[in-house]
Design a binder for these strands. Structure first.
Lengths: 155, 155
DNA sequence: CTACTTGCAAATAATTTGCATGCGA
DNA sequence: TCGCATGCAAATTATTTGCAAGTAG
């Protein structure tokens, strides 16, 4: 997913390309390993345009979510995190309970569910789903001696 | 998981057994179908003890989470939901976006994930997972003419 | 020009905390 | 009795919204 494609998609839907918006996209593209919170994205964007407000970040993330350009993850810490959708689809993750790192996995349970016809049987119309796995990542498992302190990032 | 076991576990850890606390446990036990939000649990407890405050619910849920008696789920709607930790099995649900009804399904994606060895490959230690499906239930689909109004319950 | 956008400030919503009083063991 | 618990109100945190001014197309 390149920047130009995203820009085009925005334009096609009547949205304008502001420097703020471009910078938000860049921030999202640079941080593929760990979904970013609105505040983290803001910190990044502010480095370039020091007067961008946090509301702008939220507003843009909502626009991008509506266009299915990003998806919003809810971890257990109360704040949402956002990541670019790969090729239009969505992802599920292994989320570390200690450091918060999220690693995308190449598996979606919906296919198996559809094969079983569970939704049809219950006459349920599927719209969205959530599937996230929580536990400890390899880096945190290695460092299990320091457990108790929560580092900001694993990497 | 019976009430007495939970009560004992609390007592063992120096916590007292207050009527509020017992009622919260009951509410959680009665609602095994769908993880409840703090507010829903509060509504339930208030039916019996009308002066219980929402803070008490939160405080107790945090205590129970600390003892690993309940776990906190973060769905996509910004609020946390709580459920008793299952003594073995657990459930996933079809959750109606319109009326909120939740129907348990007989499928857990973790098995398929384990078969694929994804966690081993990434050296990830799985502790918990969430899987919920959102959409429209059969009753709400029948009544799709009134869409726009959100009734409190389907049934 | 004229929507869409932004920054600011104020508004919400969920959850937490301080404090004095209450109550289980 | 003693320390955990509770209710109330106020504080925090994440996120949204109203409004007037700015700007991309």
């Amino acid at each position: 997913m390149k920047e130009q494609q995203l820009v085009d998609q925005l334009r096609r839907n009547g949205y304008k390309i502001t420097p703020q918006r471009q910078e938000i996209l860049k921030a999202l593209m640079e941080s593929s390993r760990l979904p970013q919170s609105a505040e983290e994205i803001h910190n990044r964007v502010v480095e370039k345009y020091s007067n961008v407000s946090l509301d702008t970040i939220y507003r843009n993330l909502n626009v991008l979510e509506g266009l299915e350009i990003v998806s919003r993850l809810s971890l257990k810490d109360g704040k949402s995190r956002y990541e670019l959708n790969p090729g239009g689809s969505h992802q599920h993750h292994l989320i570390c309970l200690r450091c918060g790192a999220a690693e995308a996995i190449d598996y979606c349970p919906l296919k198996a569910l559809r094969e079983r016809g569970i939704a049809e049987e219950k006459k349920f119309e599927i719209r969205e789903h959530s599937f996230e796995i929580f536990g400890y990542c390899s880096l945190c498992r290695e460092r299990s001696d320091e457990i108790g302190k929560l580092p900001d990032k694993c990497s």
